[in-house]
């Protein structure tokens, strides 16, 4: 359903939901930045789809082809909870050299918009700047947009049921992507 501003009650309901979603996303960023990866994995629904397409330069009129298609094409990431949990196990081995020693990571999340509510699921858009700083002087910057589906959950309040990460790069200018978005 789309929101209407008919009544004060509906307005308050929308504000409370937006506030709740914002706090959830900020808390998620806190877990990632503080390397509490196992707790982050707990926020992910078992059927979660995590997709970061590769972005093409395409001709005007072909923008439907701009982001690589999760159904048939190659993406930077296109996986579910099982693989994400594997990545966390790998980081926590202490011998995953591109994250050993750990990078210093900050997720700045902004422009949070609740797009629609569909039963117990909420569609949310946000923007991110992820800054990583590593060893003596390595700096990486990832800027983009996320399109999330969050699902109400009795244990964790919300779980991430779907996340599409639209990274604003074509040739990736960072040497690796070992942080989560």
């Amino acid at each position: 359903m789309a929101f209407s501003l008919d009544t004060m009650e509906q307005t308050l309901e929308r504000l409370l939901l937006e506030r709740e979603i914002e706090q959830f996303l900020y808390n998620e960023a806190e877990l990632l930045d503080e390397r509490r990866f196992s707790e982050w994995i707990d926020l992910i629904a078992d059927d979660m789809h995590y997709h970061m397409p590769i972005r093409r330069n395409v001709k005007f009129g072909e923008h439907h082809r701009e982001n690589s298609d999760s159904d048939s094409e190659i993406s930077w990431f296109d996986e579910g909870k099982e693989t994400l949990a594997g990545r966390v196990r790998q980081i926590n081995t202490g011998i995953h050299w591109c994250e050993e020693p750990f990078s210093r990571v900050r997720h700045l999340v902004s422009n949070i918009q609740v797009d629609s509510v569909d039963g117990d699921e909420v569609h949310v858009r946000s923007r991110f700047i992820v800054y990583t700083n590593r060893l003596a002087d390595e700096v990486n910057l990832f800027v983009g947009k996320r399109e999330d589906v969050l699902r109400r959950d009795p244990d964790t309040q919300w779980k991430i049921a779907k996340r599409t990460i639209i990274l604003d790069q074509n040739v990736l200018l960072e040497k690796v992507i070992t942080t989560f978005f």
Partner: peptide, 18 residues
């Protein structure tokens, strides 16, 4: 191949570091 290869690949990411 997406899990394995590239800048987000579980295997290849460590190659890059070295």
């Amino acid at each position: 191949v997406m899990r394995y290869c590239g800048p987000g690949g579980l295997t290849e990411s460590d190659d890059m570091e070295n």
